[in-house]
Write a protein that binds this DNA or RNA. Structure first.
Lengths: 350, 350
DNA sequence: CTGAAAGCGCTAACAT
DNA sequence: ATGTTAGCGCTTTCAG
């Protein structure tokens, strides 16, 4: 940041006022074509680039947005970032990426910082720990538009872009049952995240409808604080136990992968002994062993839709986006991992 | 960005000068503990957050860095972002993410913008199209430190963090040969990217050493402009042709995945008929059908190392980072896709 | 069509 | 320990 050449030196060089330079850069109609060209030419030879922060300070506009994510290791968020970036780029906006690492404290710090004028809007997918939206409320109080995407906070009025979680959970349950499962389970990563609750609720509804829901045994299994090894052992125990499920719906990709690993190790056959469906955006699902049935969210589209709404809020100052609610349906890809097998067929007949 | 309350109003509220407030916020020793507390308390009740751009303008320091990537859909870059973010967060820096979409023009525009004082440093992985580093030179001319990571530009003096591409290419070739391959091929995405050239060169060296290199037939196959369907057909043609390879090293994950897809469709057995090894960071490789042998880059570590060097350059103004050259070795995970089979053993004997 | 000047919110000398 | 003040580089009335 040791730039010496600024609008003033440029002006001096051309014997023009700074105002003229500034206007020329905005391609203002007040400036003659000739001077505009002179300005641009000189700017180019002097390697002049306007200081964005001076501009932001003066205009009270940062031309940047913040994206706050729990993590980025997941393929979903990678794709979502692409979608967000695509529209930001078109609008000439800059994108700040923040990672909350599933910690509420970090999320709060980040959100509070966003209240400084650093950004014109924020896209957020909340952490598992987030139990209040006060920090986000403050943002709205300052007229900074906020859009939830994927992981929303329920009961808080703001724009949100999500997928049809409940329906997908329901569909997954029905599919498993149709394929012969008698004791399907749902692997959840959180008991508070709406995204998980909805998926689980839909799943449960599917069981109930088929008369397979028992109050005695909750079909929802929680893996709340995620640790690869621990989760592996937890799943192993469950899957080799006496009351093991014959079908699993994984609320996230990771859990399905670990389940596969366990089954490979313990020689449990998928789909013969256990069928699996995962909520996942992984593009390698078709080459898994066996190929994995997925409920695939349109991650790119979700990111794109979320930022489009955000920009509506940013650009139209008096436009209230807080009622926007977009649902982008996921797609079910049926593959081998949830296929009906002769084993399950027999059971059915018997 | 409609904040009304600023340092001045805060000062007025407390009957203090703006200087005192400013210093209190920096936790300056010039300020008494009592006033510091008063300031912080009032700031909190008034919901005051210092305007970062005013500060940046004055200090000529943005406290933000830029990360320029060709794309983020790849798992490698997701992990790298995590590594970068981890150290930026610790340093109190903000991270701007830019996507060049493999287009040089976009990359240039982004890099030029970085020359405006918007960022204090940049991390970049260049596009396939990048054939000059002039735009990056300009950055260095303005004393903005630049670190290449993963995809570097050769023959340009700046810091870089890469992996041991040549050795890995060599190792992959030797491994394939050891397992019985007679006609291994290398799938490359670029004939200009150092990362690909080095991998391919190492691969070629391995063939030459084993007397399997023929000048008549280049074992390097290029898939330069990436398009899923086209690549699929190109691979299908190659792999079902008469001169088909009996082993493949994929320079990137995607190509291996498509190769798998082709083999599944055409019922070509991996590893019996064709063995495969991929440069990849995908964590699902163990559950592929068959499990995929990978040369896995430490993506997180590469991102982390790159940003650590960058911060050295940012923080120590007179420290020249352009000679920094860090090589973070990749790890080879041998799995089924490159296993020796009775078929290949027989061939060997015969 | 061009210019003068005020000021965005903050920091850093330099007083006091 | 606290205050005064001059900008950082730009945009924007308002004059000419």
């Amino acid at each position: 940041m040791k730039k010496k050449i600024n609008i003033k030196t440029l002006a001096a060089e051309l014997n023009l006022s700074v105002a003229t330079i500034s206007k020329a850069f905005k391609d203002s109609h007040e400036i003659s074509k000739a001077t505009k060209e002179r300005v641009l030419a000189m700017a180019s030879t002097l390697n002049y680039t306007p200081n964005p922060y001076a501009s932001s300070l003066r205009k009270r506009k940062s031309n940047t947005i913040a994206v706050i994510l729990p993590e980025v290791a997941d393929n979903f968020f990678s794709l979502a970032i692409n979608g967000i970036q695509a529209v930001a780029e078109k609008k000439g906006y800059h994108v700040l990426i923040y990672l909350s690492h599933e910690k509420f404290d970090i999320e709060k710090t980040i959100v509070d910082d966003c209240n400084s004028g650093r950004v014109d809007g924020v896209l957020i997918s909340i952490t598992k720990e987030t139990k209040t939206a006060e920090h986000i409320q403050k943002l709205q109080d300052e007229n900074i538009p906020v859009v939830f995407f994927d992981r929303e906070f329920e009961g808080f009025k703001t724009a949100r872009v999500v997928t049809n979680d409940y329906e997908c959970g329901y569909l997954a349950a029905k599919h498993l049952i149709e394929k012969g499962c008698k004791k399907p389970a749902f692997f959840s990563i959180s008991s508070s995240l709406p995204i998980c609750i909805k998926r689980a609720d839909g799943f449960k509804a599917g069981l109930i409808e088929s008369g397979l829901y028992s109050h005695k045994k909750d079909p929802i299994v929680y893996f709340t604080d995620f640790n690869q090894e621990e989760t592996f052992n937890q799943i192993k125990k469950l899957v080799t136990g006496k009351d093991r499920p014959d079908g699993v719906v994984a609320s996230v990709e990771k859990l399905a992968v670990i389940l596969y690993l366990v089954c490979h190790e313990k020689n449990i056959k998928i789909p013969e002994e256990i069928k699996v469906i995962a909520f996942s955006t992984v593009d390698t699902a078709p080459i898994f062993n066996p190929s994995l049935s997925t409920i695939t969210q349109s991650a790119f589209e979700i990111g794109k839709a979320a930022s489009e709404i955000l920009f509506k809020g940013i650009e139209k100052k008096n436009y209230d986006i807080t009622n926007e609610y977009v649902v982008i349906p996921s797609t079910f890809f049926e593959r081998k991992s949830s296929q009906q097998t002769s084993a399950s067929k027999e059971k059915k007949i018997k």
